[in-house]
Design a protein around this nucleic acid. Structure first.
Lengths: 111, 111
DNA sequence: TTCTTTTATCGTAATATTGCAATGAATTAA
DNA sequence: TTAATTCATTGCAATATTACGATAAAAGAA
């Protein structure tokens, strides 16, 4: 199969999973780290930073762009990438909502 | 290839990715939702709750258990699953650290 | 004991992901 | 113009994921 049954779940669950999935690779975490820490928006010298091939990084950037976490603007032969602020905080809020829901209050370590 | 090059990244990046990856499926988000909201710790009537086969749910539970987000104790023929409180808040903290790092301050939508 | 219930595991099929070399497309430099 | 730079896309190979039926294992009920 290999085909996720998205119709069984709520839109929120699918959205959370989509965001989590795209963060579920260390290279993409590293890219996010880089963009969050960059003084300016950074293009593809991620190729130097991470030890991956250019094609591989481009693919990771595309995935991050597809879920809306980053955006890129063409600047000559280069592309400036940066965090998509709105979507980033939307994701941030959604996960915060989940994490704040700590089980420690109601059922403190019940098994 | 299909083989993630974990040696290129920091331990933190790999750990974050690991956590995110396991949350990167709506069924596992649904299981987490269920466990967070449950008045008591819940066993495998997730099979009724979600519309997936028993073997599939068992597999998802194992993955959640493998990264330490949930734990299970055998109780007769049943298994009681619940959120692993410590690891849950460790993950919560780690992602909070990332999310709080909003880019809006230094480089407000620069591309 | 045998039967039932509950969960885990095995095996398999379909699909997805990861990574890269090679190639294209677009802009800039000479 | 031609050459160089930068990034995206294509095509491929290796591996991983998702899902489920079938079966196994363990405990309780009859």
């Amino acid at each position: 199969m290999g085909l996720t049954k998205t119709d069984l779940f709520t839109e929120r669950q699918n959205q959370l999973a989509k965001w989590a999935k795209v963060m579920g690779h260390p290279a993409r975490i590293a890219i996010i780290d880089f963009l969050l820490n960059a003084k300016a928006c950074i293009n593809g010298d991620l190729v130097d930073e991470l030890g991956l091939a250019q094609a591989t990084i481009s693919q990771h950037l595309r995935e991050l762009k597809e879920v809306g976490l980053i955006q890129g603007t063409i600047e000559g032969t280069r592309v400036n990438y940066c965090i998509h602020t709105e979507n980033w905080s939307a994701m941030s809020d959604a996960f915060h909502e989940l994490f704040v829901h700590s089980p420690s209050d109601k059922n403190r370590q019940c098994c």
